[in-house]
Design a protein around this nucleic acid. Structure first.
Length: 974
DNA sequence: AGCTCCCGCCAGCGG
DNA sequence: CCGCTGGCGGGAGCT
């Protein structure tokens, strides 16, 4: 408390000076001034200048800011504020207003110079500055008024350096509270878009399995603590991943508020699709050439990628995804860095990241979305932040249509756009652009584009708009419906407590926790953990396998019933958006499909399968099943990759490709083949880089979980593309089937790659595509998954089955084959027949079915060790009880250990208002994770798994020992 | 001593 | 070359 108080005091003081002014003005927006040149206010005198500013401006603190306010009352206020952050904030503002009065003598004493110094410092805090800024604008903009914001004006008025304003604007922009109109100019949206934005961010966060990542990191940290052993790090995989880790950059846009306007949007979706495809291809090519995905990524990342905007969104996502809405600074930093393990080199990176997080946190605090708290662990206190913002926003459902679609990574989009631009002078034209030759060039151009894009913001005005909305049509609706249904289902599932796979468990846990938590403060963050610990849980592990899990996890997953209806729609619609949805077939699908009504809608089924397949775990987490699937697959993939995948995959793929592809477009085929080769090479060499598709390197980078995973994903994605293309070419449904089967034969390990193929592309709205890309990109390893998700999303959920099982299935995909969009047009509409076809294939594809069986081993495996084991945990997580929460620091560790650990350290009870979250917990499926975080466990696992695709729980097998910790959450105040 | 995080250098980029 | 952006990290202020 004290600390908080002190802070608050400071703030107040500061605030007083500044704030008061603003409020009065609030709305007014100065904007008018176009930029006022004055930028700089001077730092020196904080005070005065502002007053000049403009009309709007408030005189902010009067200059002298100084003065002020330290009144006795302030103390009271402080106390109060300490009590509740919000109050504080308000008070601060108020104080400011009030503030005019006297300042405390004590401080005053300092007088001039000193006073200024201190005051200045405080006053200059980003949080206070943000408060001032916010005071100028209404929460909800008055449309009638001009909502333009001139940076120069603001800077002048607030008397701060422009640089500081950028920080604020970047964060606000990440929340879509403002959008850039042009250089130096922004438009104020206030909180109007906040709910949607948060919903999207949550969705995206789920897709990326940040929750899982967080758990992994926590676990690791625990492990490390206990055993230094843990050091092992996952290293290698991660190493890459880690490096790239950051990469996941992507910027989630809202329909109405887009980062940039694109001409591309205007283009027919077909074009978009084509472009997208091209981009992908080019990317892949590029990657191949380079091999260095990372580098590639790096290029991509350049600036904006790293942008505070992206960090901000990710940071917010962490809150939205974590059960206890509590995020510790270090965990957040690790996730943002992409690797949980911080090497020496990384330390500096880590520090930098932390600095940035403070910057972001200060702004978010001023928005009252989070509050600083302290989490007490055995070791000591760690700074953390608790979400104090809205808990419920429109579900994705609502947004789904839009939201889902809208999400994109800037880069991806940019890349697409760029590609388009580069390739086609005229956007509209074509689908037919040449791919091959150009692709190569494209790769380069793409990079350039990306850069441009990155820089773009600066550029001219955006039109934003809801351009994205164009697809609103049926597709969107359907998607929304699907999502809703899924969500419902998922909820149900969750409720059931199936805690399937680790991942699922995680996800579920999250969801569950959330629910619970919402009800009660105490959460068992650990839920999963407990499970682990608890015997009861055991089943959980199994759960992974269980189909249910999948469902539950994500809303995305579809139940057949629900889906089916939707499916039809989807197909037809694709036209509008042009983008296609990709469906994965998880092997599992097939089985499921069989079980279920295949016929109806392929998509649905696929979705279903996924769910069923479950790979549940993987799927579960991300709400988008597809993504999950990918993730899940990833683990497998990793394994596979590790093992041989490269070699194997290639051949098989090649084979596949040849037949189909050739037909279609030789060029494409060639290209694809080339890619494949490249991949193979890459794979062979290291982890294959993510060559392929990843448009967005960032994602690739994803921390890491395992580089391998990432690679896999990439590969998969590439493969997918290729496959798609092939499919397109061939397109015979039947043919597809055949091949598929053959493929399935392929050994498990390879699958990963194979898996890729499995995916089906279905035309969907463009947005979906974008999102897809983005998603991929975002999560490197995960990417694949995410990708799927994206696609699915639009559709309605398609769930993509996890790769794992499916591998074989993948083969099938041809059948489904929806051609890639690009080519796509051809396919524009996937005819029902096609769908059926696909479905059939799926059904046909047995492999997957078995998959489930395998699945256990498969997907889950990797992480499974922990996660798998942990499935239970979710339950545990629930453990809360009345006010008390048991937090177990549990680590994901294997049950046994955990048990021990628990025993060793029993749960600590924390009675907090806040809930503590458990940290650790098992993370489930690393596989999914791919994620950035490196999963040490995973890493180890991965290798193992490869061997047996089938799995086992590779990791699972390994018990991880994690020490449990006690966590206490305290508000910082205290 | 560690946590926060302000400050401003300086690079990338577009004009 | 210039101005806008914004990454980045030194180091100061606070606890």
């Amino acid at each position: 408390m004290s600390s908080a108080l002190s802070e608050s005091q400071h703030l107040r003081q500061k605030a007083q000076t500044t704030i008061s002014n603003h409020k009065g003005n609030v709305f007014a927006e100065p904007q008018a001034l176009a930029k006022s040149p004055r930028k700089a206010s001077n730092q020196n005198t904080v005070t005065e200048i502002q007053s000049n500013m403009g009309p709007l401006t408030t005189p902010t603190k009067g200059t002298g800011g100084t003065g002020e306010p330290w009144t006795p009352t302030s103390n009271l206020k402080m106390l109060i504020s300490a009590a509740s952050p919000e109050i504080r904030n308000r008070e601060k503002e108020l104080c400011v207003d009030e503030g005019g009065n006297a300042v405390d003598s004590s401080q005053d004493c300092e007088l001039g110079e000193e006073v200024e110094k201190q005051i200045s410092r405080k006053e200059k805090s980003l949080g206070l500055l943000c408060h001032k800024f916010l005071a100028r604008y209404p929460d909800y903009p008055n449309l009638a008024l001009n909502n333009d914001i001139s940076l120069d004006d603001v800077a002048t008025e607030l008397n701060v350096e422009r640089r500081r304003i950028y920080d604020i604007m970047n964060v606000l922009e990440s929340l879509h509270m403002v959008s850039r109109l042009a250089k130096n100019r922004y438009t104020w949206h206030g909180r109007a878009n906040l709910p949607q934005t948060l919903a999207k961010l949550r969705q995206v966060g789920e897709e990326h399995r940040y929750g899982q990542q967080m758990q992994l990191i926590r676990q690791r940290s625990l492990e490390k603590e206990f055993d230094s052993d843990s050091e092992e790090k996952e290293n290698e995989d991660e190493a890459e991943g880690g490096k790239h880790g950051q990469k996941e950059m992507f910027f989630v846009e809202l329909p109405g508020v887009e980062f940039k306007a694109d001409s591309s949007k205007e283009a027919p979706f077909s074009l978009m699709t084509a472009l997208h495809t091209l981009c992908v291809l080019s990317t892949s090519l590029h990657e191949v050439v380079t091999r260095n995905v990372f580098q590639f990524t790096a290029s991509v990342n350049s600036r904006k990628d790293k942008s505070l905007r992206v960090m901000s969104q990710k940071f917010v996502m962490l809150f939205l995804v974590s059960t206890p809405r509590l995020v510790s600074l270090d965990v957040a930093a690790r996730i943002l860095i992409g690797e949980d393990q911080v090497g020496d080199q990384d330390k500096s990176k880590f520090k930098t990241k932390v600095r940035r997080l403070y910057d972001i946190a200060n702004v978010l605090r001023s928005l009252k979305l989070i509050e600083k708290v302290h989490v007490t662990e055995e070791r000591g206190r760690k700074p953390a932040f608790e979400w104090t913002g809205p808990e419920d926003f429109p579900d994705v459902k609502d947004t789904a249509g839009t939201t889902t679609i809208t999400k994109r990574s800037l880069e991806s989009r940019a890349s697409v756009e760029n590609c388009a631009k580069n390739l086609f002078s005229s956007p509209g034209s074509k689908r037919s652009f040449t791919r091959h030759p150009s692709l190569i060039k494209l790769a380069k151009s793409i990079q350039d584009d990306r850069r441009k894009i990155n820089s773009a913001p600066t550029s001219p005005v955006k039109v934003d708009s809801s351009s994205s909305e164009f697809f609103p049509t049926k597709m969107a609706q359907l998607a929304a419906i699907c999502k809703i249904q899924l969500d419902q289902q998922s909820k149900r599932v969750i409720d059931r407590t199936p805690e399937p796979c680790v991942t699922d468990a995680m996800t579920k846990a999250m969801s569950v926790n959330t629910e619970l938590e919402q009800q009660k403060p105490a959460k068992t963050p650990e839920a999963p953990q407990p499970a682990v610990l608890t015997p009861t849980e055991p089943p959980a592990s199994t759960i992974h396998l269980t189909p249910q899990a999948p469902f539950t996890t994500q809303p995305m997953s579809f139940h057949p019933s629900q889906c089916s209806p939707l499916i039809p729609v989807l197909l037809p619609q694709h036209q509008g958006s042009g983008s296609y949805t990709i469906y994965m077939h998880p092997s599992s699908f097939k089985p499921h499909s069989l079980a279920r009504p295949q016929p109806t809608s392929l998509a649905v089924r696929s979705m279903t399968f996924e769910e069923k397949t479950g790979r549940s775990p993987s799927d579960v987490p991300g709400h988008s099943p597809a993504a999950n699937q990918l993730l899940t697959g990833s683990p497998l993939g990793l394994k596979r990759m590790c093992s041989e995948r490269s070699s194997e995959g290639s051949p098989s793929k090649a084979k596949r490709i040849d037949p189909n592809t050739r037909d279609t477009s030789p060029k494409l085929c060639e290209i694809l083949q080339a890619r494949l080769k490249a991949r193979r090479r890459g794979l062979l060499s290291n982890r294959p880089s993510s060559r392929a598709l990843h448009l967005e390197p960032e994602f690739v980078n994803t921390p890491g979980s395992s580089a391998a995973a990432v690679n896999q994903t990439l590969e998969q994605s590439l493969e997918t593309f290729l496959e798609k293309e092939e499919k397109v070419a061939t397109w015979d449904g039947e043919a597809g089937l055949t091949p598929v089967r053959a493929i399935p034969l392929t050994p498990q390990p390879l699958h990963t790659e194979t898996l890729i193929p499995t995916c089906y592309l279905i035309p969907i709205s463009q947005q979906s595509l974008f999102s897809y890309k983005d998603s991929h990109s975002t999560e490197s390893s995960k990417a694949s998954v995410s990708t799927y998700n994206l696609y699915h999303t639009p559709t309605a959920g398609s769930g993509s089955p996890p790769v794992q099982d499916y591998t074989p299935t993948s083969i099938h995909r041809p059948t489904s084959a929806s051609p890639f969009p690009t080519q796509g047009h051809r396919f524009n509409s996937p005819s029902p027949a096609i769908l059926n076809f696909t479905l059939q294939n799926l059904g046909l594809i047995p492999g997957p079915g078995s998959g489930p069986a395998n699945s256990p081993g498969i997907a889950q495996t990797p992480e499974p060790p922990c996660s798998i084991h942990s499935p239970l945990p979710p339950h545990l997580g629930l453990q809360q009880r009345g006010g008390m929460v048991f937090i177990k620091p549990m680590s994901p560790v294997p049950v046994q250990n955990q048990m021990i650990g628990q025993g060793g350290q029993p749960l600590t009870l924390v009675s907090l208002q806040q809930m503590t979250t458990p940290k650790g917990t098992a993370l489930p499926q690393h596989s999914f994770f791919h994620t950035p975080v490196s999963l040490s466990p995973l890493a180890s696992v991965v290798p193992t798994t490869p061997t047996g695709p089938g799995h086992t729980l590779p990791a699972g097998a390994k018990p991880v020992y994690i020490p449990q910790r006690k966590l206490e959450v305290t508000t910082q105040d205290t």
